[in-house]
Simulated assay, not measured.
Amino acid sequence: MQTLNILDNTTSTLDTYNALANSITANNSRASLLEQLQTTLDLDKLFDIFSMEAARYIKFSGLYFKSPLVSKTLRGSRKSKHERQFELKLNDEFIGTISYSINKPISMHHFKDLQRIHQIILYPLKNALQYHQAMQLAMQDSLTGLGNRRYFDEQLKRAMHNANRHHAHVGLVLGDLNKFKAINDTYGHSVGDQVLVQFAQVLRACVRDSDSIFRFGGDEFAIIVENASEYALDVIRSRLDKQLTSNPLLAKYQVGCSLGTTFMNRADNEHSLFERADQALYRQKMNMSKRFSLV
């Protein structure tokens, strides 16, 4: 009986040791994940780190995050049979939702694992979202909500780099309003601001979701058209002509717009591409001036 008691005690001791070891491993894992997440404010990198931890618990083909500020999709994500969504809250503050594309239901054990790592990502995620919002505001024209010149420079460089990698085409459209100074001088800057805001709305309605619109200041605007074609640029021109006449405010003040368009070639850098579009805009404005002078 004494031997049996010793064996029983040994088993109990081993169970206690294993439980303690598992607890230490889990704590170390949580600390390691938090430490890694705190190394970046970039949302894409944040979800790359997080996804590697989540993959320890469930097999998923896609991971998606959505908040009032931004939507993110993990690179390489694809749809599956099911999607499991979790709401993320920090002290009752809604942060966003995280969703997994899965082929089979999540077990209760792994469900709890996911809830645990969701708690770990909350503070780093909130910090990254605040940083993202600050950067967006720094890249945004305050009047129209379009991208500003600084953001344009970054996006043009990115679009040209992607086009070279994937052998695609980038179109650049530069535009400004005809006789805008006369509107400001005659009706005041308040009306001028209303015109700019309405024109920005018109531009949004004229482009695809994949196109990017910017305001440089004054009445100068730009559109970066990725995977571009002559047809895509013709559609923008056609839509813009129709919108300028159908928008009540812009029609009231007879707002017109000149456009200069060009396509990137393999020898271009950002400066040469911009200069060519700017020259095309200048030529159109000169032609407009000649037509006005004949009237």
Rank of each mutant, 00 (worst) to 15 (best):
G188Y: 09
F214L: 04
I49V: 13
F263Y: 13
L244R: 00
V195Q: 07
S229Y: 07
E83F: 13
L259H: 03
E35Y: 09
A138C: 09
D211P: 02
A277H: 05
Q254L: 09
T97D: 10
A134I: 04
A232W: 07
L114S: 13
R291P: 01
Y151S: 08
V70K: 06
R149T: 03
F221W: 04
H166Y: 08
N287T: 08
L4G: 14
D185V: 07
L88S: 04
I121K: 02
V202D: 09
P124C: 00
F216I: 00
L69S: 10
S51N: 04
S12R: 07
K81V: 07
L114G: 10
T97I: 14
N227Q: 15
Q85P: 02
K181W: 09
Y187I: 05
S142E: 12
N162I: 13
I98W: 03
L172H: 03
N184G: 00
D8W: 05
T186N: 10
A134P: 00
N148T: 00
D278A: 06
S229H: 14
I120R: 04
E154K: 12
Q198I: 14
Q133H: 10
S67N: 12
L156N: 09
L4P: 15
F263Q: 00
M108P: 02
S99C: 12
L90K: 09
T261N: 08
F50L: 11
E275I: 08
A159G: 01
Q140P: 07
D219C: 03
I183C: 01
E154R: 13
R150I: 08
S107P: 02
G188I: 04
I236C: 00
A228W: 06
L37F: 14
S212M: 15
A134D: 09
T261E: 07
V170H: 03
D48T: 08
Q119T: 12
A159T: 10
L34E: 11
M139S: 06
S12N: 15
S212C: 10
L172I: 13
G76N: 03
I98E: 04
G260T: 05
G147F: 07
R283C: 05
L250E: 03
Q194S: 15
K179G: 06
T144L: 01
I223F: 09
L41M: 10
L259Y: 00
R204C: 14
L146V: 10
L63F: 07
I98R: 01
I49T: 12
N103K: 14
S32F: 11
E230Q: 11
K59Y: 11
A163V: 04
E87Y: 12
V170L: 04
F86S: 04
N162Y: 01
S142T: 02
G217T: 02
Q243R: 03
I236S: 02
L63R: 03
D211R: 06
I24K: 05
M288P: 00
V202M: 13
I121E: 07
G188W: 11
S238T: 15
N247H: 14
M160I: 08
